[in-house]
Design a binder for these strands. Sequence first.
DNA 1: GCCGCACACCTAGTATGCAAGCGTGCCCCC
DNA 2: GGGGGCACGCTTGCATACTAGGTGTGCGGC
Lengths: 233, 233
Amino acid sequence: MPPPDLRIALADRARGGTRQRVYDALRDALVAGRLEPGRRLSENELAEALGVSRTPVREALVRLRDDRMVEIVPQLGTFVSKISIGAVADAQFVREALECAAIRLAAGRVGDAELLQLQAIVAQQDEAHAGHDFDRFFVLDDAFHEALCEASGHGIAWSLAQRADGHLVRVRRLSLPVPEYMGEMIDEHRAVLEAVAARDPDRAEEALRHHLRMVLSVLESIRAEHPEFFAEA
Amino acid sequence: MPPPDLRIALADRARGGTRQRVYDALRDALVAGRLEPGRRLSENELAEALGVSRTPVREALVRLRDDRMVEIVPQLGTFVSKISIGAVADAQFVREALECAAIRLAAGRVGDAELLQLQAIVAQQDEAHAGHDFDRFFVLDDAFHEALCEASGHGIAWSLAQRADGHLVRVRRLSLPVPEYMGEMIDEHRAVLEAVAARDPDRAEEALRHHLRMVLSVLESIRAEHPEFFAEA
DNA sequence: GCCGCACACCTAGTATGCAAGCGTGCCCCC
DNA sequence: GGGGGCACGCTTGCATACTAGGTGTGCGGC
């Protein structure tokens, strides 16, 4: 019985190589939960579904394994990683370490243009909130954190945090459709932004750390709600 | 004119897949400077030199590009990245952020067995110092930092730091043959270890941060000595 | 009816072949 | 003699073919 819903859309041709497009498409499908944890993937099936050969699919999967999003078992198959409490804790640790270090720097060197950009992002988040547009809010949330890291002068912090963040993103996606959380998160963004604007590294770090830990507070309820997505360990 | 010294040894067969062995061999050759910055690599040459096909070579190179150790230019070639001041700063930032966060945790939860292990590593470093064995010291230095991260409960910190660390490792390799630095580094390891043993997160973080920044103090002299290894920017 | 073995299918790993693009060097023209 | 243009060879990117190994299934024996 072939899997029923392997419809993964590739972005427009010619933007980046095939490998990058396949990676993006797969990662998006994974974090959005369209490829549910535990499912078996096959290079052949993915290649056919995406209309490309096995080679770029394979290379994308290898990269996703580095992200701990899939597990490749030789001669057996490739599986969507179940959400592991340990992996979530690791992702949280990495993200806190990198982003908190970044924001301390950002608070010391942020310019007016960057502050305006951050404020604009938060304003757009208000709009998304008003329109109950979860997907848009998600994009803007990433944009906010990315802009913060960029302001630190070490944009790499965001690249690494995002790649290490797979398990956490899936949890967030599951938790997001609770409207009140969106409002809380925007408030926290404002608190972070104010501290950065005040050039107060300690307060900025504290606000960001609190913000980043919010997601953990709902982890257990998510797990109770979707136990099949989690590994036992 | 074919490159003269593409003799890269592969580790024993059957340990990990071919891709992993090729990656390890190439990375080792890169950080050791046997493949000097700016050099052009060719998938074909590497595959021939290593006695494997292009496929695992290609996948290893893609991963090394993620590490910023090589630059792949389509239809042109793959080049050993020159050491970039910006990339060194990024690597330093990432390593500081991850390891300092890890050691704070480690100071709060380290067990006696782990302390003994750390002490044993430092003792071995003394031996390497006495024997002027730079390579051995290098391995033991990595082991010390890895053990610290493991003691934090987030071994992933070491994995990520090490992967992001390519540019920094090359600098360290160039700077290492100065014997007095080895003694200083061991002293700093001791200071870090004492603070962890005393369960003092603040002092541990401070000692580690100071230790990690030592390498930067010699960066400019290294650059003056080997300008051909560095990018202009 | 149940347990064990063997076969067939499917998997990822690897090797090789083909296509497209860029750089370089030679050759022709001015 | 100098400059412009074309063609060749090299590169990586992608597609395809082949290999080795593991799993599950179905059949045969008990």
